[in-house]
């Protein structure tokens, strides 16, 4: 049974109904363990003091903010190429979650930077590019709401997502060019020595897993809702036509 089987909305709902409770349970476990472990059982950082605890929400939310947009990009491509309604609706469902993740990344970034930078907002390149990403999310969601015909809306928003992604990357480097940057080095990078020490590492993994699962669970739930809303409109249209 190929992956495209799940493009059938009815089958999508049936399978996600089976999976959703487990995903929610896993999300709860990962989030609770990650946050509790990170918040209560890790020492303070010698330089940043207790603010390092913000890492457990800033890094996962920032990660999810970007990955949510990537997921929407892939879903838009699938819609354009294979015309599967579920992927277009999944993209629509993911946008608000991605926007919230971006908001969290922005807020926690500002809170974390405040003691270091002395101001609430220091136009740091990475935080600013999250601000721009947030604007893209707003535009994307607004376009979905503005168009009545479902198929046209799906087409237009997918193209906006494609074009927006290119400009988001462009803005990412333009912002870097525009301000020399105060953000600390990459928290998670492949070369070991630049990485944070293990004691912070494991709880962070749980938090990231928790945020990812939360995203997946929310997108499944919201996609189901979009499918049901779409089905309602379809039934009403058929009723209206009869």
């Amino acid at each position: 049974m190929s992956l495209w089987e799940y493009a059938n909305p009815v089958k999508f709902i049936r399978t996600t109904d089976k999976v959703l409770p487990w995903v929610w349970a896993l999300t709860g476990i990962c989030l609770v363990t990650g946050l509790v472990w990170g918040f209560f059982f890790t020492p303070d950082d010698f330089r940043q003091g207790s603010t390092v605890k913000i890492i457990y929400i800033h890094v996962p939310s920032a990660l999810m903010a970007i990955n949510a947009w990537l997921m929407m990009l892939v879903a838009s491509l699938i819609w354009i190429v294979r015309r599967h309604h579920v992927s277009a609706l999944a993209a629509r469902a993911a946008a608000p979650v991605g926007a919230v993740m971006t908001l969290i990344a922005l807020a926690t970034g500002a809170f974390w930077g405040q003691p270091m930078w002395g101001t609430w907002w220091a136009w740091d390149p990475r935080l600013t590019s999250f601000l721009i990403l947030f604007l893209f999310y707003l535009g994307y969601m607004a376009l979905w709401e503005a168009i009545e015909n479902d198929d046209t809306a799906a087409d237009l928003t997918s193209i906006l997502c494609l074009v927006g992604s290119v400009f988001a990357i462009l803005s990412r480097y333009a912002v870097n060019f525009w301000n020399q940057g105060l953000h600390q080095g990459a928290t998670l990078s492949l070369d070991k020595e630049e990485n944070i020490s293990d004691v912070f590492w494991f709880p962070l993994l749980f938090c990231i897993a928790g945020f990812v699962l939360l995203f997946v669970a929310l997108v499944f739930l919201r996609t189901q809702t979009e499918i049901r809303a779409r089905r309602t409109r379809a039934l009403l249209a058929r009723e209206g036509q009869a």
Partner: peptide, 20 residues
């Protein structure tokens, strides 16, 4: 209004480099 919301983020790179 919607068009401005969609277009302004796309203007950011041009604005940054132009003003620079």
């Amino acid at each position: 209004l919607l068009m401005s919301l969609l277009v302004l983020p796309l203007y950011v790179p041009t604005l940054i480099f132009g003003a620079e």
